[in-house]
Design a binder for these strands. Sequence first.
DNA 1: TAAAATATTTAGGTATACCTTAATTATAGC
DNA 2: GCTATAATTAAGGTATACCTAAATATTTTA
Lengths: 224, 224
Amino acid sequence: MTEQAATPATEEYLAVIYRLSRQAEPVPLALLAEQLGISPISANEMVRKLARAEMVTYRPYEGVTLTEAGRQRAEVMVRRHRLWERLLTDVLGLPWDAVHAEAGRLEHATSDLLERHLAQYLEQPSTCPHGNPIPGQPQRLEGARALSSLATGERGRVLAVVNEDAALLRALGQAGLVPGAELEVVAAEPALGSLAVRVGDRHVALALAAAAQIMVGAPEGQGS
Amino acid sequence: MTEQAATPATEEYLAVIYRLSRQAEPVPLALLAEQLGISPISANEMVRKLARAEMVTYRPYEGVTLTEAGRQRAEVMVRRHRLWERLLTDVLGLPWDAVHAEAGRLEHATSDLLERHLAQYLEQPSTCPHGNPIPGQPQRLEGARALSSLATGERGRVLAVVNEDAALLRALGQAGLVPGAELEVVAAEPALGSLAVRVGDRHVALALAAAAQIMVGAPEGQGS
DNA sequence: TAAAATATTTAGGTATACCTTAATTATAGC
DNA sequence: GCTATAATTAAGGTATACCTAAATATTTTA
Ligand SMILES: [Mn+2]
Ligand SMILES: [Mn+2]
Ligand SMILES: [Mn+2]
Ligand SMILES: [Mn+2]
């Protein structure tokens, strides 16, 4: 009986590992613990339990990697999470900086049946309101780059905000830096850790750390 | 520190006690335990904990009653539950016999903010899809009676199905016995434990136990 | 390459919410 | 009024998911 824990806690671990895997693979335990808001010791315990259940592989001093079974389970959770975000913003009108936390709870209370109805009602969306991909839908193949990597004068269009921290999203929303926005880098000052960007007719200055969370693609009318 | 447990488990107890209070007040422990699907001993433990937290009063051999604080908390949960049921049926198109179970999970993952947006989007509905009242909305004052109490020849309109058991709802749905349906009692046979009813042009026979779960009001065009 | 700094593991503990078995009630039927 | 029945409480146990403190192991860096 190595199987089927499927408690909210294990679901949460798998989904967080999945998300962090984009940035670092395998995922260091310290990062995982920090994201989950628990002690590294507790994270270590749980990760070893997940390894026993063959949802992850764990290499001490290196980190955690999802197994195929773990990845599938994680994708289900992330899919439900992002479908909920779409419903909450597009239909119920919640602000985009609030829906990540709400969906983070609803995802664990969602059956297969409900997931199907959600996806159907929303017409199989391919991204969440923050531009991040919904697993199970065809992804537009993107030559996406972090905004922080653009040089002065380069233009692009916002595709996604990777980090869905509420404070960051609120600030970006006010600056007009939302998926679809066209922008141009006015001045890149890596040495100063800062970036000046024109968004429409507005000028915005942001830290490199913030810019690193924004994925941009080719500007309108320019194929990859 | 007698305060604020607010775990899903305590929320669940309060909501179930609230619902059962319509039928029996105080609520016998045996009934509560059965509804929650746990042993009477565990129910006893939890109820004494709730009593310590002043959410209920508990009189051994009699039963449980909600305190004012408990009633308020319970009404929040029942309100969220029934708002979800409305969204799931009216918007997402889930079958009416499935939504009680779904809402039973979602209710615990619902914030004040989300509750407000749900209610607003649904235009402050006053009942769930099964006809049961949504706390916090004005209730139409109803001279409702159980269908099982009607005599032969009496007519009425279905207001609500009190017991939201999936199998019962599925059967009632197929028989057309849904809120709003006009009906006439064709033959009441209390001795046989059965009732024959005409619903539209259809004839339906049902057990008294089932009929007891159906609340009816005055037929169309007849004020109370 | 030997400390120093980090990371991991062990050990022991807490809280929640269940369980079973056994003892102790209280209620109700006769 | 007594006793059978049923309800309650006590006692002890399980599993999950956290925690802290202390011991060990590994990696880094000087
Ligand atoms: Mn979550
Ligand atoms: Mn998102
Ligand atoms: Mn519930
Ligand atoms: Mn209902």
